[in-house]
Nucleic acid binder design. Structure first.
Lengths: 335, 335
DNA sequence: TTGAAAGCGTTACCAC
DNA sequence: GTGGTAACGCTTTCAA
């Protein structure tokens, strides 16, 4: 079932079929309706490849995803897939997981004529953005920033971290720790910066702990370190760079007999699904995931339609979600 | 940079270029080397779309993934992406998450000329397999079985569950519970069947508990129910249909002051990454994930090359991993 | 308002 | 061995 077949069936030329189906205004509505009816009747579907080859768009958007140990990026993937479907786009996975796949990624990008790219990987961001920029393929970074050839949508990490700092201060905490990793992504750096600066302004220092990776295990390791501290050196409140690390911290503290939040308050960033499990009930900064993906797609689509649009950086405000892992410190101070 | 451009550069026809690059034995090695050198020099990459249109394979494999609340399927995705890359295939996400997307999925399947399909969704399995079968697109189900138009690779759920039953018996447990969901997938059904049958043969019954969904929350709900049982009605050992549910069960039990494994033994199935966290250290049946994906891809590739191959069902044996959430019951019997 | 023809980048079938 | 030509299914000038 192709345009040619349909044309024969309708007794017109295949050009007419193409025009009718693509809503060309020059086709009479009588002809259009007749052709459309036949097309539906025959279950016709235009071949995306042929259409692309003939100079159109592929409808493919390349996805570059970082390590999936952090559930936040899974939710992101889920949301991207859902919203892509709504807009009639198909997500082609270019890369997933740690490690760089420059060559491979680039090849697919080119060979399949990907219309645009969505990138959420820390490591790859700059490289990929650069490669795409050279190829004239629009790129939008989700939750990552780069100065090169790309637009980006992220939550305001600095503001969010500051907000958390003020919240913890307002709860009466007076000694603080930050849990992150050594290899800091832009996102992680901003969160640390925002947190430390806000506290520094208020006259407080922040002890830094770091795990190997931005994962539960990394958080757990940091948590064990904190738990082994003498009581008077133990921070009142711990802010982890991500929820997944915060959960690791909590598990480590509890394992060592410390109660959260009675002995130590812990907070994270992201608001992943696990954070609201009753066993954690983690206080955190919720990222506006749906909006992030929405705006990201909008940006990408706009740039696909008009590649000359200037790069844009969208910053979305997160929302403080005060749950059960943080609580006012006064009570304990009085003890 | 196309075959035509290269042809001009090399002073030959574009047919010759195509042949040289595709290893046609009729091309003299002198010509071949010259053309290859120019191609590399110019950074030429064949256009996958044009190639497909001209009757070749697209190199695209459709991915249909079920709900991603279960981390096992994330690992699976990761492995599929990695292995697809090795074989020069690109994974096109046709569907991800709950809910059926028949129409949409089918459209993409057809429009992008997907070479084959990998399906891991419980709900969609039969529909999709059917649709693909009609279109002549080979399908391989991973961890799912269907009788229609498809091959499948799964772990031997029945044998695995039986193995777990015997293991728990050998540890001295004498009362058992199974935790699953109401809407049972083929996988879940088999695991329940294997577990119950093995125990029934040994003369023991199994109490069934079920949560809403096959997720942490589902397990947690079941765990709460179990925890609220009077002590003499409490099972010695609990087998959950999946690790993610088992973790929920454990968290619920602990929340109610019960110790695992001192008071109750808990085991799961899958061996997801979370299972080996020191805070859980879950006993489970490990699915041979890498092999599963490997065999699945092999099957798919074989069927793409030769669509007339008969359907095949591969059953892979899982491995019992005895960790810390199960332990011999003798000690307690003596108390 | 419609039809004919060219072109997108490849591969494949025939000649030479 | 190699070159011309057709074909894949579609969109898009250019004519009429």
């Amino acid at each position: 079932m192709t345009v040619v077949t349909l044309a024969r069936l309708a007794g017109v030329s295949h050009s007419t079929v193409s025009r009718a189906l693509n809503g060309d205004p020059r086709i009479s509505s009588a002809t259009r309706e007749r052709i459309t009816a036949i097309a539906i009747d025959q279950g016709y579907m235009p071949d995306a490849l042929a259409r692309t080859l003939s100079g159109g768009r592929s409808g493919l958007i390349g996805l570059v995803l970082g390590p999936v140990e952090n559930p936040f990026y899974i939710s992101m993937l889920q949301e991207v897939v859902a919203q892509a479907a709504v807009r009639g786009l198909r997500p082609l996975i270019l890369h997933l997981g740690a490690g760089s796949a420059e060559e491979d990624t680039l090849r697919a990008l080119h060979q399949y004529r990907v219309d645009g790219c969505l990138v959420t990987s820390a490591q790859l961001s700059s490289d990929i953005a650069d490669l795409c920029g050279r190829r004239g393929v629009p790129v939008v970074m989700l939750n990552r920033v780069t100065r090169l050839h790309a637009s980006s949508v992220s939550s305001d990490n600095i503001a969010g971290a500051e907000q958390m700092a003020h919240f913890l201060l307002s709860e009466g905490h007076r000694s603080f720790a930050f849990v992150g990793t050594d290899t800091a992504s832009s996102t992680a750096q901003e969160r640390e910066e925002g947190f430390c600066r806000a506290l520094s302004t208020a006259g407080f220092g922040v002890t830094r702990f770091s795990g190997q990776s931005s994962s539960w295990l990394g958080g757990f390791a940091a948590g064990e370190e904190i738990a082994s501290l003498p009581q008077d050196a133990r921070p009142h409140a711990i802010f982890a760079v991500s929820d997944i690390m915060a959960l690791g911290v909590i598990d480590a503290l509890r394992r060592h007999g410390l109660r959260v939040p009675e002995d130590v308050s812990v907070a994270g960033f992201d608001d992943i699904a696990e954070a609201s499990r009753p066993t954690y009930n983690l206080s955190t900064i919720a990222q506006p995931l749906v909006t992030m993906v929405q705006r990201g797609m909008d940006l990408l689509l706009a740039r696909i339609r008009n590649p000359d649009l200037p790069h844009e950086t969208v910053l979305l405000r997160g929302r403080l979600v005060a749950r059960g892992t943080t609580r006012p410190r006064m009570i304990q101070d009085k003890l």
